[in-house]
């Protein structure tokens, strides 16, 4: 009985049980590779840019991780985020006070998440289908609201997260980086150190077992969609900090990009396994890959190919690891 268990001790088990280790190794390898093969990659400004470029998708991916941990998937996250940016920008353009516009934008994105969660839990429909529907509705709503326009942002508060600070007069940091990191750490804590987090994992593992164990499955699921909505709302704020222009056609592949980051971060699409820190690393892997390949003079389309291959490889590794574990 114990011999099979003992065989799994050591490095293999550590990697399996600490989901962020594999992706971190991959990230380090990628950074090392591009640092050696190009002259321009390993540069403080470039590295800062890499992080800034990963902020919006990285934030979307944080909310996506929550949903995927429960065994779901959110196809509407980027669309909800875009709707948020439009609301914030247009309300300010229409003369609403910036703090109010900001809150209204975030509130609407949270409402989209809450509605999604409500439909998923109350009707018991698959999140894939529900969020596919929400994606269509919210995208259309954004276009109707924008009326074929985009809204430039000049307000200081809406662009706040893009504000640059210089550490040691050299390293370019933005407030958005701090906000993203703070959210990651907060959710990491909530998922690993509180009962709520354990319930989220248990629901994703086996929701019937969770129910029989006395966990309020619906309440837990609903809370996940609401928290994810809040994260997407902040992602909208991040987006305006990064590019001060609310465009209804922005982030069209944001939903799939966020899934890419989650999967590369080692979170299982089957639910119940993974970590938000892995997702943080996953988002950085995508950004490093894109930047590195650009420095190496490789065309955008081939970067897409590389990312696609990497995603399939990551899922295959996850699958393989699970099978060996049984």
């Amino acid at each position: 009985m114990t011999t099979t268990a003992l065989r799994r001790t050591g490095v293999g088990e550590f990697v399996l049980r600490t989901p962020a280790v594999g992706p971190t190794i991959a990230l380090v390898v990628a950074v090392a590779l591009f640092s050696l093969t190009t002259d321009t990659f390993l540069d403080v400004d470039n590295l800062s840019l890499v992080v800034q470029q990963s902020l919006v998708v990285g934030t979307l991916a944080l909310g996506q991780t929550l949903v995927i941990l429960t065994g779901g998937i959110d196809l509407a996250n980027a669309a909800a985020c875009v709707l948020g940016t439009l609301l914030m920008a247009r309300l300010v353009a229409d003369g609403v006070a910036a703090p109010l516009a900001l809150l209204a934008g975030i509130a609407v994105v949270v409402a989209v998440g809450a509605t999604t969660g409500g439909v998923v839990t109350a009707l018991g429909l698959p999140p894939f289908i529900v969020t596919l529907g929400v994606l269509a509705i919210v995208t259309a709503a954004s276009r109707i609201y924008a009326g074929g326009q985009s809204f430039p942002v000049t307000d200081g508060l809406l662009g706040l997260l893009g504000t640059r600070q210089y550490l040691f007069g050299q390293i370019e940091l933005t407030i958005g980086m701090g906000v993203a990191l703070g959210m990651y750490l907060l959710l990491w804590y909530s998922l690993t150190r509180t009962a709520w987090g354990r319930h989220v994992y248990a629901v994703g593992n086996d929701s019937e077992a969770a129910r029989l164990s006395g966990i309020h499955v619906r309440r837990t699921l609903l809370s996940v969609y609401v928290v994810a909505g809040l994260v997407y709302g902040v992602a909208a704020w991040q987006a305006l900090g990064r590019v001060p222009n609310a465009d209804p056609n922005a982030f069209q592949t944001g939903n799939l990009d966020s899934v890419t980051a989650v999967v590369l971060g080692g979170t299982s699409l089957f639910g119940g396994r993974g970590s938000v820190l892995g997702t943080l690393v996953g988002a950085l892997i995508v950004a490093v890959l894109r930047s590195g390949l650009t420095q190496a003079g490789i065309d955008n389309l081939y970067q897409d190919v590389a990312t696609g291959v990497l995603v399939i490889a990551a899922v295959a590794v996850d699958r393989f690891a699970r099978r060996r574990q049984r």
Partner: peptide, 9 residues
């Protein structure tokens, strides 16, 4: 009968 355990935990 199916134990109602969370296998990954």
């Amino acid at each position: 009968q199916d134990l109602a355990l969370a296998p990954a935990q």
